[in-house]
């Protein structure tokens, strides 16, 4: 039983990292309808920026915070390019974000080189009973929970959040209500950048990042986000947990080589089950 709980804890820990990455996808897609292929880049840049700041002697906490602010600004720039002229179709925007992701490789290599980096986060374990979790993971789980609560409140309760949501459901109606859809899109990209950066600064102490680490980070985040249809933050959180727990269970009770394949198969099965319940025509 202790073993099961240990795997469950490990799954929740990694699931929270996936969920945290997923938030960025959700915010951007929900508002702009663009799947941001550059989402993993925010995490990579967040990690590198925090690394540089820490090395320059900035204190922990402040360094990470500044890195997140900078990735928010980078998110804004990505949004400016990706949204392009008014009327750029989402497929074109998607390819543009992919282009920006590749462009970031050039930037990272120029500024930081092509070697992987990492820095120290919280060290040691938090043990309750026989079940333990690395402190850094505890921090991530906490950050993920807070982020999701904040997002749910933001979209559900605040005027700005509702305005953002209005853009996604009906752009014309939103415009008639006097909401600047384009500006809202940029705002979404900035928030998405900050969320990606947050995931990055928290993840880098656990796993090293290099210029092209964004793909691996983004795939898991995308998987979690898609679980909630890319629009529902809470379901995306659930998606992350399903993925993380399934992986940990496979690694714990079977063989870790199959953890990704089996976890993805589980997610697919759940999605197909959802689809069959919804009926064929509903998006």
């Amino acid at each position: 039983m202790t073993l099961f709980l240990q795997y469950l804890a490990a799954g929740i820990a990694s699931g929270s990292t996936f969920a945290l990455v997923a938030t960025g996808f959700v915010v951007i897609y929900r508002v702009t309808g663009v799947i941001n292929f550059a989402q993993g880049v925010f995490a990579v840049l967040g990690g590198f920026l925090a690394y540089s700041l820490l090395h320059a002697g900035v204190a922990h906490g402040l360094a990470e915070g500044v890195a997140v602010l900078i990735t928010a600004a980078i998110g804004l720039v990505v949004g400016l390019v990706a949204l392009g002229r008014r009327g750029t179709p989402p497929l074109a925007s998607l390819i543009v974000t992919l282009g920006l992701a590749i462009f970031s490789y050039a930037v990272v290599i120029t500024v930081w080189g092509d070697l992987p980096i990492s820095y120290d986060g919280l060290s040691g374990l938090l043990a309750i009973g026989g079940v333990s979790m690395q402190r850094q993971y505890v921090l991530i789980v906490g950050a993920a929970v807070v982020t999701f609560l904040a997002l749910a409140l933001f979209f559900g309760r605040t005027y700005l959040g509702m305005a953002l949501t209005a853009c996604s459901s009906d752009q014309r109606a939103a415009r008639l209500m006097g909401i600047d859809v384009w500006r809202m899109g940029l705002l979404a990209f900035a928030v998405g950048g900050a969320l990606g950066g947050l995931a990055g600064v928290l993840l880098t102490p656990l796993q090293p990042v290099q210029f092209d680490s964004d793909v691996g980070i983004a795939v898991n985040g995308f998987a979690a986000a898609i679980f909630g249809g890319l629009v529902r933050p809470v379901t995306a959180f659930a998606g992350g947990l399903v993925l993380g727990v399934a992986e940990a269970m496979v690694a714990g009770y079977y063989r870790s080589s199959y953890e990704t394949a089996i976890a993805l198969a589980v997610m697919l099965a759940l999605m197909l089950w959802q689809a069959s319940r919804r009926g064929p025509t509903e998006e």
């Binding site: 073993l3 240990q6 795997y7 804890a9 490990a10 820990a13 990694s14 990292t17 979790m133 690395q134 993971y137 656990l206 796993q207 691996g216 795939v219 898991n220 993380g244 992986e247 940990a248 690694a251 714990g252 063989r255 870790s256 080589s257 953890e259 990704t260």
Partner: peptide
């Protein structure tokens, strides 16, 4: 004997074993 693959990020199960 423990295994991992390229996407493994959390080694808690393996290290527990």
């Amino acid at each position: 004997q423990e295994t991992n693959d390229f996407s493994t990020t959390n080694y808690t199960p393996q290290l527990t074993h």
